[in-house]
Simulated assay, not measured.
Amino acid sequence: MLKKIESRNMGSSNLGWLRSKFHFSFAEYYNPDNMNFGVLRVINDDLVEAGTGFDTHPHRNMEIISYVVNGELTHGDSMGNKNTITRGHVQYMSAGTGVYHSEHNLGKEELRFLQIWILPDKKNYKPNYGDYKFNWNDRQNTWLHMVSSKDGNAPIKINQDMNIYSLELEKGKEISFPVKEGRQAYLVQIEGSSIINHILLADRDGMEIIEEDISIRSEQTSHILILEMKKQD
């Protein structure tokens, strides 16, 4: 089963310094029929003006992934971590029993990043932070496995049965991705456009995939993220 989600039908917000597309209910966008996709609770496609950002605020019992599309994202938290990541890099924080953090754009250009929240497999883990500066070329025309469960083999491991892959597919090329029985996946067409099992996705569109293998053909060079997980009844 495939379900296309057009970006123009997503929730949105414009705070001036922050402009967002919400794949699922968040902040002032509330849709009881669009609260989550399995253990995937939030994907916010955020545009953050230079010199602004999210000041220190709390989180608990959530696995939080930040994926930078363009610009610089600087993280700080109550565990003493501080680091800056750029295009194609990933930041991970397990909020667990509770943590305070901030996220700012200290660069000179607009920041675009995907803010992803995943429900953990149990509550009250010890808080944890990590980041990984992936080589951009490692996702060119192939799936780059960035995030997995603690039992998986990706560089970043989270407290949930979730795999996250990124891809840059050159114009005119094709690639497949299996979504096996008992599994589901959420795809974000971050940049470019592609045809997925005969369905056209434009930049910032999304797609729900349940127990169906997909074939992707790039209409324009395509930057794609896939979050694959256990199917939820």
Score class of each variant (00 low, 15 high):
Met93Ala: 11
Ser94Glu: 15
Ala95Met: 03
Ala95Gln: 00
Ala95Asp: 00
Ala95Cys: 13
Gly96Asp: 01
Thr97Gln: 15
Gly98Arg: 14
Gly98His: 14
Gly98Pro: 03
Gly98Thr: 12
Gly98Gln: 12
His101Arg: 14
His101Tyr: 15
Ser102Tyr: 14
Glu103Leu: 14
Glu103Ala: 13
His104Gly: 09
His104Cys: 13
Asn105Ile: 01
Asn105Leu: 02
Leu106Asp: 09
Lys108Cys: 06
Glu110Gly: 05
Glu110Ser: 08
Glu110Cys: 05
Arg112Cys: 05
Arg112Gly: 07
Arg112Tyr: 09
Arg112Gln: 15
Phe113Met: 14
Leu114Cys: 02
Leu114Ile: 03
Gln115Val: 00
Gln115Glu: 07
Gln115His: 09
Ile116Asn: 00
Ile116Leu: 04
Ile116Val: 09
Trp117Tyr: 09
Trp117Ser: 06
Ile118Glu: 00
Ile118Trp: 00
Leu119Asn: 06
Pro120Gly: 08
Asp121Gly: 03
Asp121Cys: 04
Asp121Leu: 05
Asp121Tyr: 07
Asn124Val: 05
Asn124Ala: 11
Asn124Lys: 10
Asn124Met: 13
Tyr125Thr: 04
Lys126His: 10
Lys126Glu: 15
Lys126Ile: 10
Pro127Phe: 06
Asn128Glu: 13
Tyr129Met: 03
Asp131Gly: 07
Asp131Tyr: 12
Asp131His: 14
Tyr132Lys: 07
Lys133Cys: 10
Lys133Phe: 06
Lys133Glu: 10
Asn135Ser: 08
Asn135Pro: 04
Asn135Tyr: 02
Trp136Arg: 11
Trp136Ser: 06
Asn137Glu: 15
Asn137Arg: 11
Asp138Trp: 04
Gln140Gly: 02
Gln140Thr: 14
Asn141Asp: 15
Thr142His: 09
Trp143Glu: 11
Trp143Asn: 12
Leu144Met: 12
Leu144Asp: 08
Leu144Thr: 10
His145Thr: 11
Met146Arg: 07
Val147Tyr: 01
Val147Glu: 00
Val147Gly: 01
Val147Arg: 03
Val147Ile: 15
Ser148Lys: 02
Ser149Gln: 09
Lys150Val: 10
Lys150Trp: 07
Lys150Cys: 03
Lys150Glu: 11
Asp151Ile: 07
Gly152Pro: 05
Asn153Thr: 12
Asn153Gln: 11
Asn153Gly: 03
Asn153His: 10
Asn153Met: 06
Ala154Trp: 06
Ala154Pro: 03
Ile156Ala: 02
Ile156Ser: 03
Ile156Cys: 06
Lys157Ser: 00
Lys157Thr: 01
